[in-house]
């Protein structure tokens, strides 16, 4: 039931944002179709239901968005510097890191966030191990790399996805 409700809310908000109007006819059509889809296709989808809905988790989600955008901007500045430097200072390699997150969605968001932040790119996930291509390898052992790459996001995601 929680899955259906979350799916309905997601579909409905996309519909309202795309239409950009609060016309009752449009809202009714949107609600009808969202209800139909969420009950017909979403009795077992556990993709969204991993999200923790406590107030603290919602506050952390907002903080996560800002931290993430900050990291994205830093990523671009650092990569631009590398690209424009005549000597092309890169030191690439694939390192292994470990995550403490259990839920599937939490791991997916973590992998996406890593892909979009400074010089790191998720190549593969096996259970709790993430294999990351790193433009500038600073430490080759698992613990050092985990501390450098994962811990920024993990403390928020741990609260959000429990």
């Amino acid at each position: 039931m929680k899955n259906n409700a979350l799916m309905f809310l997601t579909l409905m908000s996309v519909w309202v944002l795309l239409n950009a109007s609060l016309d009752p006819t449009l809202l009714a059509i949107g609600a009808g179709v969202s209800l139909l889809i969420s009950f017909a296709f979403c009795s077992k989808c556990d993709v969204i239901s991993g999200i923790n809905l406590s107030p603290k988790a919602i506050a952390y989600s907002f903080m996560f968005v800002f931290v993430f955008i900050g990291e994205l901007i830093k990523a671009n500045i650092s990569i631009s510097k590398r690209v424009l430097a005549p000597s092309l200072p890169i030191n690439p390699g694939i390192v292994q890191v470990k995550t403490k997150l259990k839920s599937k969605v939490g791991r997916m968001v973590l992998a996406n966030a890593i892909t979009l932040t400074p010089g790191t790119f998720t190549l593969d996930i096996k259970g709790e191990d993430l294999f990351i291509h790193w433009v500038d390898v600073k430490s080759t052992d698992v613990d050092g790399a985990t501390k450098e790459i994962v811990s920024t996001f993990e403390k928020y995601l741990e609260v959000m996805y429990g």
Binding site: L72, A75, N76, I79, V83, I90, P92, F121, H133
Partner: peptide, 17 residues
């Protein structure tokens, strides 16, 4: 960039931002 993996790094981050 010298190889495929470094290139895709640059492309992903910059196109998103």
């Amino acid at each position: 960039m010298p190889d495929f993996y470094n290139r895709i790094q640059v492309a992903t981050k910059a196109s998103t931002l």
